[in-house]
Simulated scan of single mutants.
Amino acid sequence: MLVRDRLTWLTYAQLAAWAYFLYGFSPVVPLLRDEQHTSRAVASLHGVAFALGGLISGALLPPLVRRFGRAAVIWGGLLGVCVSAAGLLLSHALPATLSWAALASTAGGLVVNGVTAALADHHGPGGPAAISEANAGAAAIGVVAPLIVGSSVAAGLGWRPGIAAVVAVVVAIAAFALLTRVRLPAVQLQDSPATGRLPGRFWLVWASLLATGSVEVCLNLWVADVLRTHAHVSPAGATAAVSTLLGGMFVGRLVGSRLVARLPGAAVMLGALALSAVGFAIFWPATAPWLALTGLVVTGLGIALLYPLGMALAVQHSGGQPDLAASRTSYAVGVSFGVAPFALGSVADRVGPHLAFLLVPAFLAMSALAIVTLRNRVAAAQPALAPTLD
């Protein structure tokens, strides 16, 4: 049973602040391509910058937690996100926007992985439900972010003021923490080793996260472009329409937090992958905006649980090393952020974004294969454990 306290709500809010930046910036990439007069492949370098930041944060997290503690690392990450937002507000050249994207991803990775490990430790058996619920809140904020950015674009202000609003969000969260005097507990050194060996099952989850991360980043970065070129939605409307995907993710994570508390994680993951495929099958061929948006909602319902449940499974199969597992998953997410959007952008420059989007179901199939293998290994190991349980 999940019992929420002030610490729970604080970590939820911290994750939501990063989500505002992430989901607000993702649909901006096509606008940056227009602004900077680059190809889709070059614009997708912002995804590579996010990947680089994810890899850096994964390497930094264990030693930083050991040295400063989770609380300082998470707050430091939020500060880095604010600095990045301010930098983007003042920057227009490609090298500058790439640099700020990399810094934001590094800082955001510290927030995400710190919060995930904190919730897993704080809630024990209720950790997977708490992680899913935290990501539901993040998706709810993510619904708002593209709408604010899209409204800013429609008003002629550009996208930057909408992104910079994250600073106000972080200030409000810090004020809440100060007023309520809630703090993350200290972490024992053995709970966050800088090095260690993770079980083979963890690496199956890692492979699944690599694939599902590729799905999510491709959708967030390029779905607005497909809406513009295939469903004939205006640039401002396509940017704001990403909220339909995130709306589906919010509902999916809210409902999913109940499912993961009652059903095996692998079974829920496979169901989510199947629903994602159904939603994509509706979205991809649609030329009418309403049908394309309907497909995005269904897709959002499916992909909602892929990341939070993948993170929960990674911690579950980490052999009691939550911080190390969280840091290593950053590499999976980082690689997916770098390789997938660049591959999709490169293909899109040759055949168009619509055909290039067929990479998405391929990534879904890759994740399903990894989870089926994990489930089979767990099932095979259970009979061997049975005599010790009698």
Rank of each mutant, 00 (worst) to 15 (best):
V217G: 01
A231R: 08
A16D: 02
A139E: 00
L64C: 00
W75E: 11
V48K: 00
S367H: 09
V42R: 08
V297N: 00
S99H: 00
L221T: 10
F25W: 13
A343S: 13
A107Y: 12
V372I: 15
P285Y: 07
A332M: 09
L184F: 12
A145I: 06
H123I: 07
G310V: 07
S327G: 06
R67A: 15
V143K: 03
G352P: 02
C218H: 02
A145T: 05
Y331S: 13
S234D: 14
A120P: 01
D323N: 13
G265V: 07
A85H: 10
L60G: 02
A261D: 13
V166M: 11
P62G: 10
Q36K: 04
I56G: 04
L275Y: 10
S208Q: 07
G279E: 05
G24Q: 03
V223N: 06
F280H: 05
I173L: 12
M1P: 09
G334K: 10
M311R: 04
I173F: 12
Q190F: 06
A164D: 01
V251S: 01
T329S: 12
S152N: 03
R70S: 13
A348E: 03
G265I: 06
T195G: 02
P30D: 04
P235A: 08
A102N: 05
F357E: 00
T212H: 06
R197Q: 13
D390R: 15
A261V: 06
W203G: 04
W222C: 01
V260S: 05
L198M: 07
L324W: 09
G279H: 09
L389K: 06
A101M: 12
S327R: 10
A356L: 07
W159I: 05
M249V: 11
G54I: 11
R66M: 02
Q382S: 07
A118H: 12
A118V: 14
A381G: 15
V29K: 06
L61Y: 11
L301N: 00
A292S: 08
W290E: 11
S132L: 10
L254R: 12
S57L: 02
A343I: 11
L103D: 06
A288I: 09
A16S: 15
G338I: 08
L344E: 04
A384R: 14
G47D: 05
F250Y: 13
G300Q: 10
R228H: 04
D390I: 12
L313G: 04
A332C: 05
T229Y: 12
A138L: 05
R328E: 01
L385F: 05
L313E: 13
D349S: 08
M249D: 02
L45N: 01
H92I: 02
L359C: 12
G24Y: 09
V333K: 00
L275H: 07
L7K: 10
L15E: 01
L359E: 03
L309T: 14
T212I: 09
H92V: 11
V378L: 15
L147F: 10
A386Y: 03
G196V: 09
L15P: 00
V115A: 13
L309Y: 05
Y307M: 08
V144G: 00
A207K: 05
Q188D: 15
V3Q: 14
V242K: 00
P185G: 06
V81Y: 04
A348Q: 04
G127Y: 08
F21Q: 12
H123Q: 03
L209H: 01
G80T: 08
A343Y: 01
